[in-house]
Structures are given as C-alpha cells and as structure tokens.
Design a protein around this nucleic acid. Structure first.
Length: 223
DNA sequence: ACCTGATCATCT
DNA sequence: AGATGATCAGGT
C-alpha cells in the first residue's frame, strides 16, 4: 500500500476528497491494495479507517485531529437513499468525574466539532459493502445557531452529571446531542460521582450527534 | 481503562 | 423503519 502524505492545507484535503468521491469502497480499497471485508460485523471502523488512509490522515488511534497539521477531523457518515443518516455520530467520551467548573468553551465536544470533513457513504441493505459509493465531501464548522444548540444540550447534560444524576440520563434527552453507552461492553465500568457525592462505578458514556442534526447539516449543503 | 474508528442487535 | 443500548477491533 502506498503511503499518502498528510494534506498541508484544507484545499489540498478537499481536492483529495473530491477525487475519491464517486468511487465505491471496493474500488478505493483496491487502489490502496487493501482487502474489503464481507461486512462490518467484526470491523466496525473499517470504512472510517480506510478513508483516513486514502486522505493521508495520521494514525487513527491517536487522540488528536485526523489531519493534525490543519486541525480537521474526518467523519464518515452512512446515508440512506432518502438522504437520512443511518447512524448517529460519535463525538467523544462523556466526562463523568471531576466535572465541576467545566465550560462549553473548553469542552471536548466543541473542540472536536470545530472543523469536520464529512464524507457521506451510501447505505442500502441491498448494496454490498464493496459496492457502496463514496459521496461528495463537506468541510464544516458549526454555524452560530448550530453551536448554540450544541452548547445548550452540553450544559444540560453536564449539570445533571454534576448533580450525580448520570443514571437518569437516557438517549431520549437532548435536542441535537444524546448520551449513550460507549465502552467495550455493558460490563465496562468507570468512576463517576453518585447522588450523595460519593464515588461510584458506572457505564462509560459517549456523546453522539442525533441523525436529525447531521441530516440537516449535510442536506443544507447539497440542496 | 480510555482513546481512535464506528455499526450491530433488539425493541418499540 | 427508527431509535436505544450494546458491542467490535486496535493502539496507548
């Protein structure tokens, strides 16, 4: 597989993204000399990792932006024929301990979503993984109103967590963000603060963008 | 355990 | 069919 250098500018990244738009995942993998799995059952991150390689992202396992030189995060998003995302988008782990004094302005959610290259990936139950096509890229930053919605949700969540109400948070809460489990499995535990201020163990959680939010931001661009 | 990449499996 | 809670893989 050929080594692809990190893009030095957003323009360079966008040119690369447009160059692979329209290709199928199988074609892209073939260009990279990588095998395409039959399905994603045992390799759920395959699409994202393959696109990272194609665009010159630095190693996917590091806790830094995918395109470190230019501060851009890559998100692939599965899109159905009706232009609705099939899945929510994971943002980051939810801080559930030592959260007092945390502000939206310094939050990981804000930092992560500051600059995102969205790449839609065709999704249809009847199309095999190798035949799913790569869509047109969208380089995005939250608009003032989008950021306001994100901030409102984030502050509501962090207030509940600060009050020891983590266990009361379900995926139903939040207009544009939701909190759901995000761990190795349902037995994974991390520390949080209970109702009486004591340290207790709980499921690790993640922040996810609702599909209604990502659908709007993607489709606004392509209208 | 927690970060990266997300989708799967099940229920409504 | 959409949404929620559970899960897979690999690096740090």
């Amino acid at each position: 597989m050929k080594k692809i250098t990190p893009p030095k500018t957003e323009e360079e990244l966008l040119v690369r993204a447009w160059n692979i738009a329209g290709l199928s995942l199988g074609e892209l993998a073939s260009q990279l000399e990588l095998p395409t799995p039959q399905n994603l059952l045992r390799n759920k991150g395959w699409i994202g990792e393959t696109l990272e390689k194609a665009l010159g992202a630095t190693a996917s396992s590091k806790p830094e932006p995918d395109f470190q030189l230019i501060g851009v995060e890559l998100k692939t998003i599965p899109i159905r024929k009706n232009r609705q995302p099939k899945e929510t988008t994971h943002v980051c782990t939810v801080p559930i301990i030592n959260t007092t004094g945390m502000l939206w302005e310094n939050s990981l959610v804000k930092e992560k979503l500051n600059r995102v290259l969205w790449i839609p990936i065709e999704f249809d139950e009847n199309i095999t993984l190798e035949n799913r096509k790569i869509g047109a890229p969208l380089l995005w930053s939250p608009s003032p109103s989008e950021e306001a919605m994100l901030k409102t949700d984030w502050e509501e969540f962090m207030e509940l967590i600060g009050q020891g109400e983590l266990e009361q948070i379900t995926a139903h809460l939040g207009e544009v963000i939701q909190i759901r489990p995000k761990g190795a499995n349902s037995h994974a535990l991390s520390e949080t603060i209970g109702k009486n201020g004591e340290v207790v163990r709980s499921l690790p959680r993640g922040f996810y963008l609702r599909t209604s939010f990502t659908a709007t931001l993607i489709n606004q661009h392509y209208l």
